[in-house]
Design a binder for these strands. Structure first.
Lengths: 109, 109
DNA sequence: CTGGTTCATATCGAATGTCAATAGGAGAAT
DNA sequence: ATTCTCCTATTGACATTCGATATGAACCAG
């Protein structure tokens, strides 16, 4: 694994969906949002982010449209869909189940 | 991904190390222990378990020796090493950091 | 208007981890 | 003996992630 592997594999979709649940963002905006909210614990690199966005769009969880960034740059904005919101809920529940289970495991003496 | 993908990718090592922290177990014993403690939330299949065990032994986190199971079958018992205990502590802290970060993400409105 | 920097999207190759399916051997049971 | 269960193990396929890199657009300095 890489040196700074901080991303918990399998939770990237959850993080992205959650980031977009409030408002549409462009790619790097999503990355910044995640890094900001988690106080730097997750650093989503482009090589992880964009394949994930494409995959999620293909599955109908996101839709995208070209626009302009805060800095007047060309930027593709991603928006969560209704299907994506259902998926967010699924992944949220999955996370709760998993973190509870691991908690049980760690607390078992 | 598979139908019942319940395992959070990247946490298998943590679960195995923790399972072995109390006492040595053979492969399927580890699998059962994890399934039991987590109330079935994690089902570790052989195709996931044994590659993980070999990998972890190669890294010096585990040592193994042939013995006899509770049912008189030939069984390879895995034991956590001192290095493995340090790794367990690392992974435990990593888990705490990650679950805290995701918690922050999910609670952000 | 030219060169450099930042922003932003994107792709590629390699490595890793997981799973489903399967194999195979060894003890137990009848 | 043959059937069953237990236990270890491998194989092939697949998805995900990462590091590195490429490309292009807008801005700024001189």
């Amino acid at each position: 694994m890489g040196e700074q592997t901080e991303i918990l594999q399998g939770t990237l979709d959850l993080l992205i969906l959650k980031a977009l649940n409030l408002e549409p963002l462009h790619g790097l905006g999503i990355s910044r949002r995640i890094e900001q909210v988690t106080a730097g614990a997750f650093q989503v690199k482009p090589g992880s982010l964009f394949p994930a966005l494409h995959r999620m769009e293909e599955q109908g969880w996101l839709s995208s449209s070209w626009g302009e960034s805060e800095n007047r740059r060309k930027a593709k904005y991603y928006k969560i869909t209704a299907v994506g919101r259902r998926q967010l809920d699924k992944e949220r529940q999955r996370w709760i189940r998993i973190s509870f289970a691991i908690g049980q495991m760690l607390e078992s003496n």
